[in-house]
Amino acid sequence: MDGMAQADEGWTVAGRRFRSRLVVGTGRYKDLPETQAAIEASGAEMVTVAVRRVNLSDASQPMLQDFVPPDRYTYLPNTAGCFTAMDAVRTLRLAREAGGWNLVKLEVLGPPPFLYPDMAATFEAAAALLADGFEVMVYCADDPVAAKRLEEMGCVAIMPLGAPIGSGLGVANPFMIKAIIAQAKVPVLVDAGIGTASDAALAMELGCDAVLLNSAIAHARDPVRMARAMKAAVEAGRDAFLAGRMPRSAAADPSSPVSGLIR
């Protein structure tokens, strides 16, 4: 070794390589220029997008694509707002037609106030999408059994929640996230719940391949600055994971030599 740490080579999902381990949403910003500036600052290469009806009364309004160009960022269409497997499958078939690619984020949600993943409906939708040729990155409960089953079905990434969507509560159950990572052969992303930079760093220190977040940036007082913080946090967390943390000790262990003290 020459003493220099190896640069992070990034991660791969469904044969696509990404240098940035931060995946960001494009929702909840003040306007499209702010969306553009925050995503630029985050360094993300993959962004989630929603599929919605066009506004028939004003078809000329500005489009996301004009600010977040799909030839520069990998669009990951989501099924946010879908509460049934059928709605999720319909939404992603439309997304594939609109965008022309197969890589998607599946999420089927339970009712408010938690919008917790509806795993029965998620399995149903995943099976239909996989049979239809989609490459499915799946939002799921932090449940190692469910996560393994989704992987065995053929999902290309497992994305357990850190905490409920938009809650900013951080990684509520780091032990189960670690358990999911330990058994997975596909990338694991913490998706949802990240509130601030230290949450993203913690997720990466657990050994996640990447982190997916939106509100933590969009709802910060200064979204562009928080985007920059998230970029640094994800890089720091990854490095810390690779470096391997020191053991915890209940007692002090001084860093300075105990010999040679003046008397």
Binding site: T26, R28, Y29, T35, A50, V51, L64, L94
Partner: peptide, 10 residues
Amino acid sequence: LEIVHFIGGG
């Protein structure tokens, strides 16, 4: 008919 496009989302 449903006519859709991509918008910002998380």
